[in-house]
Nucleic acid binder design. Sequence first.
DNA 1: ACTAAAGTACACCGACTAGTGCAAAGAGTG
DNA 2: CACTCTTTGCACTAGTCGGTGTACTTTAGT
Lengths: 211, 211
Amino acid sequence: MAAGQSESHGRPEKRRAITRAARKVFGREGYTRASVDAIAAEAGVSKRTIYNHFADKERLFLDVALEGANEVTAAIAQIMDRHLHKIVDLEQDLIDFSLDRVAAVTAFPDHFALVRAIEAEAARIPGPVLKAWVDAGPQTAHLRLAPHLRRIADRGLLEIDDAERAAAHLTLLTITDVNQQSFYGAVPLPPSEISKIVAAGVQTFLRAYRS
Amino acid sequence: MAAGQSESHGRPEKRRAITRAARKVFGREGYTRASVDAIAAEAGVSKRTIYNHFADKERLFLDVALEGANEVTAAIAQIMDRHLHKIVDLEQDLIDFSLDRVAAVTAFPDHFALVRAIEAEAARIPGPVLKAWVDAGPQTAHLRLAPHLRRIADRGLLEIDDAERAAAHLTLLTITDVNQQSFYGAVPLPPSEISKIVAAGVQTFLRAYRS
DNA sequence: ACTAAAGTACACCGACTAGTGCAAAGAGTG
DNA sequence: CACTCTTTGCACTAGTCGGTGTACTTTAGT
């Protein structure tokens, strides 16, 4: 499953410094505006070293994107387990889960700024590569939420025929709504507004899927 | 209501050629990659003429963005009237409406490619300007859908307490879902898949809001 | 046909970019 | 120590970009 781990020919410590810096600069500037020199400066590394570790700017971007996707997907999986493993008050648990999931966006600002960059350049990213990223990131998060909902439904708390669809709808009604209005955190929303959106989203979800 | 109509000092015919070309090139390349020379070539116009009509690249982009937002908002308002004025079969009417709304995305590919560019550069767009765009585009579309739903609810076909929220939820469950998966049309979805998503979205919406 | 505004072609500037080549310094391993 | 791999700094290529200045031609109104 090693994502974009291309045969690295340099010191791994430097490689990590480069990817961290690249994530920051790519997130802040977008792919095109981000200059390799700026990434090198941010990483405290020679530009030549970057080209020692990565074939070109494009490969660097993709490796960083996949790395971040895996990282964030793992974090979200943890949030799912924390909130959805045992249900006491379904509505409140779904709200708490969604709020934590929204908070993950602000907890990984560099990554989600990069997500914006990817969505913007989607038309210029080779199809297979884009698919690899979707599979590692959003798609996996999706597929992991579905079994949780399925389990809750099996306990009689929800009425779900297609668990993946239900997962998609819950995500849309909460996280996607918040992200869309806040431009993935670029325009911050007051927490009270976030709470309202999430609560309303969960309410609608439950009205549609509660048994 | 004249959006970004800055005092134009040139022939309006040329101005329109420039904005049309700019919309195309900005949509295809994104803000940064799009070169003023490329826009001039696409418009069949001298680069100097562009700088006669627009102060700089940034103003050009914003004017184009606002112009397109108004145009598309008007088109969507028409779609709403066509499908939601008189309801015969609520579920089918909502599905048809949503499918037409999705089709608008592919009917204005340049504009929605530009929407992607805006969302990507949201962090670098001055707050007030971004707000002006949101108000002219997505926000207006939203506010126009709400009264339709309110009216349908008043006829006893829906049970809605907050019409704007309901409009947001219907939009999320249909258009947003499709757009997210297709990256606003950059990765085309088969029509059958679009139909499935929309039908499922409307179904969930009705389960939550049908009286 | 005269005039004034607008458009055009084109050279040009300064700044920036991705990527390379190379010689010298640094670091880890035997 | 010596050997090797990596990193570094820096100059360099070859190109692009936003934007301007200028001298010229076109267009529209009267």
